[in-house]
Design a binder for these strands. Structure first.
Lengths: 111, 111
DNA sequence: CAGTCATTTGGCTAAACCGCCAATTGTGCA
DNA sequence: TGCACAATTGGCGGTTTAGCCAAATGACTG
């Protein structure tokens, strides 16, 4: 894998890595509904504001969200809109797998 | 966020976290074409086989891939098929953002 | 321009992650 | 059974990440 290809894969990986944390998923979930200021998100996530701010900078660096200052507040909105589709996909796949797992266990207990 | 909701978000986050590494993205990319044994993937990724094996166990734990032993070899295939769509989405979004960035810089240099 | 509110940054510790090596397990074959 | 090959597991050092607190920045208000 040459350097250029690696850089490509790293940029893509950065997006998924940014989504790979419960608090950040919650934030994205919230931003799917409407834009929010940091204070809103802090209340929703329930961590320190500095922690939430760092989560937001991770999402921003990956290109997932976008920020805009309006007066003293900074508002965040979803930039990478298509992530919406990821969620439903992952959700349904995980449910399917849970169902398969369940079937497997049941087949074992009642042969 | 109650415990049950947190567990849900953690399961989803696990999927994205699994995809959040260049080598693992490369592996998934490869598995999108066809199933592969660990020896194949080791050659493609170019790391130690133990490293690749651990990457695979991460992907498997997240439900992204599935393994099957055939003789002395173990074959991996894509389980969460819909991740295919993530890639094109992320790819086009990143390109769009790069383009916007370029436009921005150009507008600044030639006002 | 002092004070206050919203947000980010720096610094710290604990935990998680990456990649390699060495050792172990599982499979097929003589 | 003994050997060779495929793959996983355990363990180590170095790097990254998470969360909190404290301090700094930015912006409005009197």
């Amino acid at each position: 894998m040459d350097a250029k290809t690696l850089a490509l894969y790293e940029a893509r990986a950065q997006v998924f890595k940014a989504l790979g944390h419960p608090s950040r998923l919650l934030i994205v979930d919230e931003l799917m509904q409407s834009e929010r200021c940091v204070c809103d998100l802090t209340a929703i996530v329930g961590s320190d504001m500095s922690t939430v701010s760092k989560h937001l900078s991770v999402l921003k660096a990956a290109g997932v969200v976008q920020d805009e200052r309006r007066g003293a507040q900074i508002w965040y909105r979803l930039r990478m809109k298509c992530v919406t589709k990821f969620f439903s996909c992952v959700e349904s796949e995980l449910q399917k797998q849970a169902r398969e797992q369940w079937d497997l266990v049941h087949a074992g207990t009642t042969p």
